[in-house]
Design a protein around this nucleic acid. Structure first.
Length: 462
RNA sequence: GGCCCCGUCGUCUAGCGGUAAGGAUCCAUGGUUUUCAUCCAUGUUACAGGAGUUCGAUUCUCCUCGGGGUCACCA
């Protein structure tokens, strides 16, 4: 059974980097019919954990990701951690250290003055005497003083750390008794049955410490996969200052879950030359062994392309539903098929799409100056008049082709090019020089509204 | 600074000793379109540098340079 987990600390929302590792973990679990668990790492700041969990679950829900089982909150597991701390104490694998904070920082100052690595000197490692008065002890683990710790990483390969380079007897429980991060991570991952740890490679240097804890407690080692960071355009770790890092902001900007997930799965991972992945394909094909070793820069050009791709290929019924968040209730619109077909190919985001819909269905009150100057000159108003007469006289007007025939008639009868009628008509109908096909626009708004817009334009520009 | 990771077009990436170094995006040009967008063509741009190993290195090794991460009684 493959068990993965996503273990964010409660920052209040789900960000892009977290989402990517969550996605990888989710996909790998689903591929193996395993479990994808969620744990909130709130040992220190319990205050926002509930909201944070909700924000994450909300974002998961929007994206169609589901975690399995109950959410684990580290803040509620003190007794469990205490039990394992005591076990290590009893087995002599951990000990109480009475070094005061002052003494410790003095030690570090001397060490760095001597250009030595700053580390705890093991003063209380084998202490047998009477503890000093007035110092509440921390608990330190007896870490190996020499030898190698090898992290077998599924992405980076075997990484060798020398104990004397990186280790000391690090603290596993603070003076107030609360356990520290590396300790609870190891304990929880084991207790939750996690077999594959997929996380950012900023955790790589924590891994040896966690391995020490696994070994001290006699736990089976999971498989590690450290995925490279996502960098901003400056090449630094992506952070909140880099704009839209809140996943839900992408919903507001009009991105679809498919596009965002597809974008993220291809950031640092690949399957040959394939660019488009449905959710099913991702679940079928994702494998952490194909994760890139190097960091990737966050650049949303491709996200825009993917988003327009998914919009273009979405069924209209689904688009109508998605546009509801912008206050557009298209479900009952009798011309919604023509409308959505006409605009889905010209929008990068749902938000843009909504704006385009408004542009079509709203009677223009404003005409762009340059458009008026370019298109409503010469006999343009006369042409509009002739076309308007045909519209109002026509028997059946429903389809775009019905309107197209009328335009064709004017063109033929007057011996003019299509542009001679198209441009003025476009300005009359939309107030600007660009937009969807005119025959579609007229079919969508219908005969009366078409007439209204034509007469408005003529009246205003005569 | 110590330790660790990384280094192919601007960006995302394919490559796994022999390739004209491929795809995607972006950008540019042309075509289609009454317009814009879409779409379709075409084009510009990359193996950080230097030593080895080898008949042959983008691929293996070492060094240099560059970038990043991490060094808490934070997570």
């Amino acid at each position: 059974m493959v068990v993965t987990r996503f273990a964010p600390s409660p920052t209040g929302y789900l960000h892009i980097g977290g989402l990517r590792t969550a996605l990888f973990s989710y996909l790998w679990a689903r591929r193996h019919n395993g479990k994808f668990l969620l744990r909130i790492e709130d040992t220190d700041k319990a205050r926002n954990s509930q909201e944070a969990a909700e924000a994450i679950v909300n974002a998961f829900h929007w994206l169609g990701l589901e975690h399995d089982g109950e959410i684990i909150y580290q803040s509620q597991r003190d007794e469990i951690y205490a039990k394992y701390i005591n076990q290590l104490l009893e087995e002599g694998k951990a000990y109480r250290c009475y070094m005061s904070k002052e003494e410790l920082s003095e030690l570090r100052e001397t060490q760095s003055a001597n250009k030595e690595r700053t580390k705890y000197d093991g003063k209380y490692r084998d202490f047998k005497g009477t503890p000093p008065e007035g110092v509440k002890p921390v608990i330190r683990i007896k870490a190996p003083l020499s030898g190698d710790i090898i992290v077998r990483d599924g992405v980076k390969g075997d990484i060798v750390f020398r104990a004397e380079d990186i280790l000391d007897d690090f603290v596993i429980a603070r003076a107030d008794g609360s356990p520290t991060y590396n300790f609870v991570v190891a304990v929880d991952d084991h207790l939750m049955g996690v077999t594959e740890i997929i996380r950012g490679d900023d955790h790589l240097s924590n891994t040896p410490k966690q391995i020490i804890i696994y070994e001290a407690l006699g736990f089976d080692m999971p498989n590690f996969h450290h995925v490279p960071m996502i960098h901003n355009s400056e090449g630094k770790k992506l952070s909140k200052r880099d704009g839209a890092t809140d996943v839900m902001a992408y919903k507001e900007m009009g991105y679809t879950p498919e596009a965002l997930l597809n974008f993220l799965v291809r950031l640092g991972w690949s399957h040959g030359d394939q660019e488009i992945f449905s959710m099913d394909e991702m679940r079928e094909l994702f494998d952490p062994k194909n994760i890139n070793k190097s960091a990737s820069i966050y650049n949303t050009e491709k996200l825009d392309w993917l988003n327009s791709h998914y919009i273009k290929n979405a069924p209209n019924s689904e688009l109508a539903k998605l546009l509801e968040q912008y206050g557009l209730l298209l479900a009952s619109h009798d011309k919604k098929e023509i409308l959505l077909d006409a605009i889905k190919e010209r929008a990068k985001t749902l938000k843009e799409m909504a704006a385009l819909v408004y542009e079509v269905i709203t009677t223009p009150t404003y005409y762009e100056q340059t458009a008026v100057e370019k298109a409503l000159k010469g006999n343009a108003l006369e042409i509009l008049n002739i076309f308007g007469a045909k519209v109002s006289a026509a028997k059946e007007l429903h389809l775009p082709s019905d309107y197209h025939h009328l335009m064709q008639e004017v063109v033929d009868e007057m011996g003019i090019g299509f542009g001679k009628i198209g441009q003025p008509l476009r300005v009359a109908l939309l107030g600007k020089m660009s937009g969807p096909g005119l025959d579609s626009v007229m079919a969508i708004i219908g005969r009366d509204e078409t007439m209204l817009r034509i007469t408005n334009a003529i009246a205003k520009h005569s």
